[in-house]
Design a protein around this nucleic acid. Structure first.
Lengths: 222, 222
DNA sequence: ACATTTCTGTTGTTTATACAACAAAAATAA
DNA sequence: TTATTTTTGTTGTATAAACAACAGAAATGT
């Protein structure tokens, strides 16, 4: 736990807390670290989520298997992100998503329910926490809207350009790495991988983008 | 204001508050009611949102005009829903969506920023409020994931069946009214209206669904 | 009650994408 | 190093959806 202490302290979940508050909270929360291998399921559809999961290392895909068997990647999370936070608040609602470790992953697990039932939201550190969680959830919300915009484009070309421009804006640079391999990007944008590869080449030939593996650069014209 | 008092008191935003707390809060928030005609913009892309908007009457579409001019309906809100709540918390972020009155609409407007700067989150009623907002945002989050599932289906048929089953589950009934007309539903699912109409007829002929105007019934086979 | 506008369903044509099959390149294991 | 597996790019074909154009129904206004 100590190895990650500074990282935890600087995470958005615990933003603005003193060392005393944080250590108290970690105890109150019964905090522990769990490891997951690549491909392991951290959360399954149907689970009832009562813990806060804070990613300390690795990346996690939020996925859903459609009724007809196709995989949908809702979003990809990485260090300092929370997994399935929205389901913690809605206590009696089951998770409708899977969380799958995309790489080997370490997660800080906090028993939210236990803590809140003990202090009845009365302690100051809980007040800071809920404020932070509110902020985090707001940002997640905005991200989801962004994703809806990405996948709502009508052509493969527009999906790619929208996605890449949004990434560029987020990183504040026209050159950046994307966190997906081709198949995962296709599952994220809900398009066929080979058709996507073809369109990427076309965009490169037209000079709109340049890429090599996961490194992408947008030309000024995009 | 008095006309809506009970409705406001029972809305999720103010859930669990005493009359005293609520009245104090409404004053602190500088609460007022605004009316919008059908088609009017309540929020525009680029706006900085500092108010909480609670719908008292009517329905509101959250939309986005894509870069290439096509309309996307992200979601539709109705009585007791909040508009663009996620942008209130992220103070320095501009709205990336439009909120458009789909019918004549009345909205309770609360100056969130003013209130929080005055009481510095110290008063109990603010504590209750932020808890409520956290719950609301969680539910919105889950709704957005649901919408992503809807639009991520690969065929018009699957989009319709997924959307309709999800609606049925939400209303806990195989018969229900949908809040969209055909064009809006098409914009919500990101598909062509006429192709969608065609597919609806087909589903009806096959006996999977029955519908008349906005009333839909799912057969047991769906 | 009639005229006018909006909404919905139907059809044919064009176009884009999924799908399958494969080759080349890269990564991994032996 | 060589062999094996995984990932990525390319092509042709079948299919599904967009688009356009229109007709009938429903809603609205006068």
């Amino acid at each position: 736990m100590e190895k990650y202490y500074n990282q935890i302290k600087n995470s958005p979940v615990f933003y603005g807390m003193s060392d005393d508050e944080l250590r108290g909270l970690l105890e109150c929360f019964n905090a522990r670290i769990r490891s997951f291998d690549e491909g392991e399921m951290i959360i399954r559809q149907g689970d009832r989520i009562t813990n806060i999961y804070l990613i300390l290392e690795g990346t996690v895909n939020i996925e859903k298997d459609s009724y007809w068997g196709r995989r949908i990647i809702i979003t990809q999370l990485s260090v300092n992100d929370n997994i399935a936070l929205a389901f913690v608040a809605s206590k009696n609602m089951e998770s409708n998503i899977d969380a799958v470790a995309a790489t080997d992953t370490k997660v800080l697990v906090l028993n939210y329910e236990k803590c809140t039932s003990m202090c009845q939201n009365a302690c100051t550190r809980h007040k800071v926490l809920i404020n932070n969680l509110f902020d985090i959830l707001s940002k997640e919300n905005i991200e989801l809207i962004q994703k809806i915009e990405n996948v709502s484009q009508k052509s493969i070309r527009d999906k790619l350009l929208t996605y890449l421009s949004n990434e560029a804006r987020k990183r504040k640079s026209h050159a950046f790495e994307i966190p997906f391999n081709r198949q995962d990007l296709a599952d994220y944008l809900n398009i066929d991988r080979s058709a996507m590869s073809f369109e990427l080449s076309k965009l490169q030939k037209e000079g709109l983008i340049r890429y090599n593996k996961n490194h992408f650069e947008l030309s000024a014209r995009v």
